[in-house]
């Protein structure tokens, strides 16, 4: 049973996220799943910045922000300390951005997976370094324009596809890998719950649209997230023991154009014939996901 808002709100209102921020909504749901007996580690990023101006905090659970690239290592140390104290009833959870996860914190994360700490590592994926002003990350999708890989006369934006982080996590033979979306909160809740039941590490990647960085109106966050799922660009699935164990079937397949056109980061693709041709590449990414994961 998902606790009702009034019953258990562990992520208090009043923080400084942009209105409509996907990761703020996701964090609220994640904490509903963890309950109070948890310690949360958040590496540097938007979530850390908007929740921790000194002397204020929306975190009603113990929370620590160490550095940008060491969330998984700090969580490992906390988990080891709890084991030493005989307090394995308390769970440690990381909630970190895609930059902290896909790029700079990858070594520490790989170490945590390999050592087998029973820590759910939750990556909120807004597909760029947002905190520093929308810079390219290896999680940034193909053809998105960012401030460090902008579109221009000689550029369509990101020239490489999104890094397949769930596959990298799975290659560590960890217990549980899942993707979720803030637009499907019950599914997100259940996946976090499941991660918490694992004896070893788990990896949960949550697609969290960012209105400021992606360029869409703040009231559209949930809609954009759903569209991403329905195009096949943000597939929702679970893997256990190396096997695909569940997929969220696409309810009504949407062409990628619909998703791309709704966002400022892709608008350059719709300003010329050549740009429109580029869109086909993104459609191929979606088709590949649909085929590989059986999303239809």
């Amino acid at each position: 049973m998902i606790p009702k808002t009034e019953e258990q709100e562990l992520f208090a209102p009043g923080h400084r996220a942009c209105p409509g921020c996907g990761e703020a909504i996701a964090t609220r749901w994640i904490l509903k799943a963890t309950g109070t007996n948890v310690i949360v580690v958040s590496p540097t990023g938007c979530l850390e910045t908007f929740t921790s101006p000194y002397m204020f905090s929306p975190w009603r659970v113990p929370w620590i922000h160490p550095l940008f690239e060491n969330g998984a290592a700090v969580a490992s140390g906390i988990e080891a300390a709890l084991r030493y104290k005989g307090r394995s009833d308390i769970r440690v959870v990381v909630i970190g951005g895609d930059g902290a996860t896909f790029d700079i914190g990858m070594g520490a994360l790989s170490g945590m997976f390999e050592r087998g700490h029973p820590v759910p590592y939750i990556c909120y994926d807004n597909e760029a370094y947002m905190n520093t002003g929308i810079q390219r990350c290896s999680s940034t999708p193909l053809l998105a324009s960012t401030t460090t890989q902008p579109s221009g006369r000689r550029s369509w934006g990101k020239d490489r596809p999104k890094k397949n982080m769930p596959a990298i996590a799975m290659a560590h033979d960890i217990d549980y890998v899942a993707t979720a979306s803030v637009s499907y909160p019950k599914d997100l809740y259940n996946k976090v719950k499941k991660g918490l039941t694992m004896e070893g590490p788990s990896y949960i990647q949550v697609h969290t649209p960012c209105c400021t960085g992606w360029g869409f109106p703040p009231e559209k966050t949930v809609e954009i997230g759903r569209l991403a799922v329905n195009t096949g660009l943000a597939p929702l699935f679970e893997m256990e023991g190396g096997e695909l164990t569940s997929v969220h079937k696409i309810e009504k397949k949407a062409p990628v154009d619909e998703y791309l056109m709704a966002q400022g980061r892709f608008k350059h693709l719709f300003q010329s014939e050549e740009g429109r041709k580029e869109v086909a590449k993104v459609q191929r990414v979606a088709e590949l996901n649909i085929e590989r994961l059986g999303l239809l």
Binding site: P66, N70, A73, V74, G77, A80, K85, A108
Partner: peptide, 23 residues
């Protein structure tokens, strides 16, 4: 608890985490 780290950066981060947990 002897945690084998993947780098010195992680080793320091691990003891930092442990210290934050009061150990």
């Amino acid at each position: 608890q002897y945690v084998l780290s993947d780098s010195e950066f992680s080793a320091a981060s691990i003891v930092y985490g442990a210290s934050a947990a009061g150990v």
